[in-house]
């Protein structure tokens, strides 16, 4: 049933968010630490490793695939609710800081990729 898929997905997310919050409290941070990331790992684990596999019959999988397919529309809605006015009219300091952080971070990606590639060759 479709709702099983949605239910598994929702349960993974809630468990992940709770664990992420606990992790935050554990290290004394006022933020959720990787809750969504943990939820993703739980979902991957639930559908591959454990005995849940038979839950992945087509209608159940459809409940997860639907939300996966809704990802781009949701992201578009998210873009439409950003505080663009504040970002654009915030003055040069914020703009320079934001642009510099993005530009330099982009430049680091090929370097780190090469580093990761090399270590893989060694092992």
């Amino acid at each position: 049933m479709v709702i099983y898929g949605v239910g598994i997905l929702a349960a993974c997310m809630l468990a992940g968010v709770i664990l992420g919050d606990l992790l935050g409290q554990l290290i004394g941070v006022k933020a959720n630490v990787g809750g969504v990331g943990i939820a993703m790992l739980l979902l991957i684990w639930a559908v591959t490793v454990s005995g849940f596999n038979k839950l992945l019959e087509p209608p159940t999988a459809a409940g997860i695939n639907f939300w996966s397919a809704m990802y781009i529309p949701i992201v578009i809605a998210m873009a439409a609710k950003q505080n663009v006015v504040a970002a654009v009219s915030s003055g040069w300091l914020a703009i320079v800081a934001g642009v510099a952080a993005v530009a330099i971070s982009f430049a680091m990606i090929p370097m780190l990729s090469r580093l990761a590639g090399k270590s893989e060759d060694l092992s």
Partner: peptide, 28 residues
């Protein structure tokens, strides 16, 4: 749009995209 594009649905959809991700690629 505030509801659809809010953190709740965004995170829910992000978790859903993990369906089909490869554990191996993550581990490596």
């Amino acid at each position: 749009l505030g509801v659809l594009g809010g953190a709740m649905f965004r995170d829910f959809a992000i978790v859903a995209t993990a369906f089909g991700a490869e554990m191996d690629a993550l581990k490596r």
